[in-house]
Design a protein around this nucleic acid. Structure first.
Lengths: 339, 339
DNA sequence: ATGAAAGCGCTAACAG
DNA sequence: CTGTTAGCGCTTTCAT
């Protein structure tokens, strides 16, 4: 703190000042190292005076590990995603790692970025956006870098994963709608195939088929509010033939609702019941009060970080898959809750 | 790619395989190094075959710099903040750095985290949440680590900053409201002092005073939707004495609106005009159509990253302050726009 | 254009 | 409990 030297201060400087060896300096800054309390204090004092701080690059080089953990996420400014990332960052830190963030834009080459992360000797990577190619997944395995995929499906049995149970999701949506009296159903979901989003929509449609209830399908451009607003126009045209709609994301649901209110003066749930999915914060806002299915971001991220830690401890561990259940949230866009 | 050895492959292995020295391997992976095209290709080929990748820790140790840039952000799951972070991450990457993310929770000790970042020899830090203490700011300067503060005010002339012009913001809100016919004004803002948020509210109140128009003040618990919903109860009680309200954040505004609609059946803008601030995505949603003032996250972040880069290039550069202007966005919660 | 040699700052055996 | 001795994997003069 006091010095204002040009050269950065190293453990050597501290050692000299404290009158000990460099090893002692290292030990003083290492949890549970073999060092007497007296020496440690002496070192810490000298370090403080010199304004010393451990160089993590050097430490990492020696120990062969940075304690960096990569987070790969796209659409970071989407409510659900940003919540995931916030929780993930906090959780990663509380496990003693530092999150290094890779935000992926639609046209980005994940391979390349993921590859860069590996250069940093990351302790692990958590991916919650596009699915990396098998090639890069292999590369992670080769380097023994734990990789966990969130909501990318568990079909590929080569990485640990955490995902919602799309089957259960689809059936739950069906149940929520039918038990509150809806019988002429519809579903809106994006075109782009995605394990969790289109997956639950399809599961819903399948459930309808297996129960012999017809279901109208509306395909949106993507899973955003704007896309919901757009497709809402089509839903409006079919208003006389449906009384309940499942939207694959809350954002989509809110877009649909606003469009329907604006152009058809629809009242919810009287004119139409709607169920969303995710339970983002906005779903609870007064203007929507959307009935939905909660995808617990906290549970999901905790599971992912836990899987990662476990694999760090034991790289040979068998591949794990965590299946997450959604829970129904009844608000004001469905007529009644069931017990 | 082919090997499956236990030991990580190093530049030494590649060198041997390519029949050159380790220096050549290094050069092959360095932009614009002095190496013949032929040698480079030979090395690259050997590297590919071995599955070699440069160890950034070792490189960083040698060159004394990681190309990591820290982002310190709180309330990451707030719409405006997550947008900032997404843009910042993209921008940092496009400048050739990697973003390392520190999410700060209300009770966290920023000092400590910031301090950890310094251990990584970060090339720079961008802070967009709580203001670091002068002590840590000093520490950054001592270590010659560029630090730029977003929306923390420029009072402290010891770090580069980017912030909105609170004065202009307050006056703009006043103008938007009065020019569309509101004359009995109110402002809602959080208690916690914050440069940008409470700053603009105060500037608004000051402007009112200087124009001799009375202004009712409502203090919310924080700047969230929920806090807006709460304080909306108080606004409702004063409905007969106000016709225009400025909410210090869009979130607050939307909370207030929903409460007012729910409990007092208020119609906007007929019964009350409202202006928010930030222009988050939700402000444009059909249920709100909030008139607001846009705080351009992109412009803000680009400026911050630019300042950082410039300071990396030239550490002795004079301290810079970028003052951002807000632009009015007229939607449906004000009666008219002015030309 | 290339190779040899000397570290970057730290930790981890190994002795004592 | 402490000091000595070797590197970790890379870049970088400095010769050639």
């Amino acid at each position: 703190m006091t010095e204002d030297s040009e050269k950065p201060v190293t453990s050597f400087d501290v050692a000299r000042r404290a009158g000990v060896s460099r090893s002692m300096v290292s030990r003083a800054f290492t949890e549970g190292a073999n060092i007497s309390e007296k020496s440690r204090e002496k070192v810490l004092k000298a370090a403080e005076e010199l304004g010393y701080r451990v160089n993590f690059m050097a430490r990492g080089l020696q120990t062969r590990q940075s304690n960096l953990v990569g987070i790969v996420a796209s659409s970071l400014d989407t409510p659900f995603r940003s919540r995931q990332v916030r929780i993930a960052a906090r959780e990663i830190i509380s496990h003693g790692y530092r999150p290094i963030l890779l935000t992926v834009e639609p046209d980005d080459d994940i391979e390349q970025w993921l590859s860069v992360m590996l250069n940093y000797n990351v302790a692990g990577v958590i991916v919650t956006s596009a699915t990396p190619s098998p090639k890069i997944i292999q590369e992670c395995r080769r380097l023994r870098t734990p990789l966990v995929l969130i909501n990318r499906g568990k079909n590929q049995d080569i990485a640990d994963t955490v995902q919602i149970d799309v089957q259960q999701a689809g059936e739950l949506a069906y149940t929520m709608l039918t038990r509150s009296g809806a019988g002429r159903l519809a579903v809106v979901h994006p075109q782009t195939p995605s394990y969790s989003v289109t997956g639950r929509a399809h599961a819903f449609a399948d459930k309808c088929s297996s129960e012999n209830v017809e279901v109208k399908e509306f395909i949106s451009a993507n899973q955003s509010y704007a896309a919901g607003y757009d497709i809402g126009g089509n839903v409006g045209l079919a208003l006389d033939r449906i009384d309940g709609v499942f939207c694959a994301t809350d954002l989509l649901a809110m877009g649909v609702m606003d469009r329907l209110r604006a152009d058809w003066n629809v009242r919810f749930p009287d004119d139409l019941q709607v169920v969303g999915c995710d339970d983002i914060e906005q779903a609870g806002w007064g203007a929507y009060q959307l009935s939905t299915m909660r995808q617990d971001a906290e549970e999901q991220v905790l599971a992912a970080v836990r899987q990662m830690s476990e694999r760090i401890e034991n790289p040979e561990m068998e591949i794990q898959h965590f299946n997450q259940m959604l829970t129904p949230i009844f608000r004001k866009t469905t007529l009644s809750s069931y017990d």
